[in-house]
Design a protein around this nucleic acid. Structure first.
Lengths: 116, 116
DNA sequence: CGGTATCCTATCGGATACTG
DNA sequence: CAGTATCCGATAGGATACCG
């Protein structure tokens, strides 16, 4: 398990590293979580929910998640256009972990506020 | 759960974000995982295990983890010096989650290699 | 509505040399 | 052994304007 050094230069050095590369980044965790909570979200809805994201970052992040097979993108060829995002099966497998992390985060935030 | 927008400018916008900030970064996941697998590791042992990390990044990352209460640092005032790192109770709470993520990563890596 | 394009800056992380 | 210090390059992310 240790010394799992089969990947060199640029490749993940272990599965933990591999996974973190796919869900790291400033907004990926939140996007996955919000998609889980709502099943389907449109581009504009994601933008409102993530209120502090720029369109550039939102598009970029959504593309990366799509390329990594964590979300799927459904385009409706209408006017005005409509695009829906949802979790893939692979993406859904990450939800228990994100939920666990969220609970842990809540606990730490509560701890911190008690100290103030 | 959504619209958890009590944190503005610089503060985490939700617990998912909060948690990702603490375990994000290029090496944090691996460090936590290796410390769990070995219980205690010295600075040089971590450096060898993370083989691709520079001393600057290792020290910096360890300090951040320590400041966030995820690991503890024990200094032996000897010559030559000896410093041991281990997980705190709060840090240990993250292990099941990291392990889940690691298994997920392993599965994806296996999937990818089947496609090649 | 759902994006692109362009430009810019700040932070992250790397290389290397040095120290108590 | 366990770090610091300094400098530097890459890249993640932000601001703003525009487009089909």
């Amino acid at each position: 398990m240790l010394k799992n050094e089969k990947y060199l230069n640029g490749e993940p050095s272990c599965a933990v590293d591999y996974a973190f590369r796919r869900i790291g980044g400033k907004y990926k965790g939140r996007i996955l979580w919000y998609l889980h909570a709502n099943t389907i979200l449109r581009y504009g809805e994601l933008r409102k929910t993530l209120y502090d994201i720029t369109p550039k970052m939102l598009t970029q992040t959504l593309r990366e998640l799509e390329d990594d097979g964590l979300i799927s993108r459904k385009v409706y060829h209408e006017v005005p256009p409509k695009v829906e995002y949802s979790l893939t099966e692979t993406g859904k497998e990450l939800i228990p972990f994100i939920d666990y992390l969220r609970q842990w985060g809540d606990k730490q935030i509560a701890k911190e506020s008690r100290k103030l």
